[in-house]
Design a protein around this nucleic acid. Structure first.
Length: 209
DNA sequence: ACGAGGATGCTCT
DNA sequence: GAGCATCCTCGTG
């Protein structure tokens, strides 16, 4: 196993977001079958980005950072989880990037099931078609039992970690504006495997009106 | 197929 | 009080 180490994540956030396409997300708790998903969609968030949760903590003029609250953890050591609740309901999984003191994170937006699909079905409910198990950031968190417990934890080993992977020869990486934003819509920082069935069906933020 | 609307809680104003 | 890195259900065509 070539699991992603802190140094893998201690790089430019956009580079990490691209490099995570084809990587595996592994959920390996005790007493539960292992779940593995292949990452097919990510988004990058950087400290000078108005959509970044820690945007108001970073002063571009002086280069100083106020590491306060949950968003302050976006400036922590790379390889840690940044997990937060959106719309009062869904946990979203990010991995902290860049050197400590520099803000950045990659949102894992969609994976394709590789192993443990039965467990994912049990978590998501039987009424769903398989494509709906993990084709969105809230959905994959439910399928993989990701919640607040992983916020601030190192994602470099059990029970939740990432393993390096590649894009197949017949696959291409596509880019778009990110999903669900009102600010920072001009930054083309959503990356996905073009045409893959497990890419989320959402519309990029610069194509809505 | 697609669009509208509701659920629900944390953070900042 | 508003906005939010979402998802699901229920309308209409």
């Amino acid at each position: 196993m070539d699991s992603c180490s802190p140094s893998f994540f201690r790089r430019d956030t956009v580079t990490v977001a691209r490099a995570l396409l084809g990587a595996r997300l592994v959920r390996d708790p005790e007493n539960t079958p292992r779940r593995v998903g292949r990452i097919v969609e990510t988004e990058a968030y950087t400290q000078d980005d108005p959509a970044f949760h820690g945007w108001n903590l970073y002063d571009e003029e002086t280069g100083t950072v106020r590491r306060e609250g949950r968003a302050g953890d976006l400036f922590a050591e790379s390889g840690r989880g940044y997990v937060y609740l959106i719309y009062g309901m869904h946990w979203l999984l990010n991995v902290v990037t860049e050197p400590e003191g520099t803000g950045g994170a990659v949102l894992v937006r969609a994976v394709a099931p590789v192993e443990g699909t039965e467990t994912m079905r049990a978590r998501r409910g039987a009424s769903h078609r398989d494509v709906n198990l993990t084709n969105g950031p809230g959905k994959l968190s439910e399928a993989f039992d990701v919640d607040d417990a992983f916020h601030g934890e190192m994602l470099t080993g059990s029970p939740l970690y990432l393993v390096k992977g590649e894009i197949d020869a017949d696959e291409t990486i596509a880019t778009s504006s990110r999903i669900g934003l009102s600010r920072g819509v001009d930054r083309p920082w959503r990356f996905f495997i073009e045409g893959h069935p497990y890419v989320s069906p959402a519309t990029p933020s610069d194509q809505t009106q």
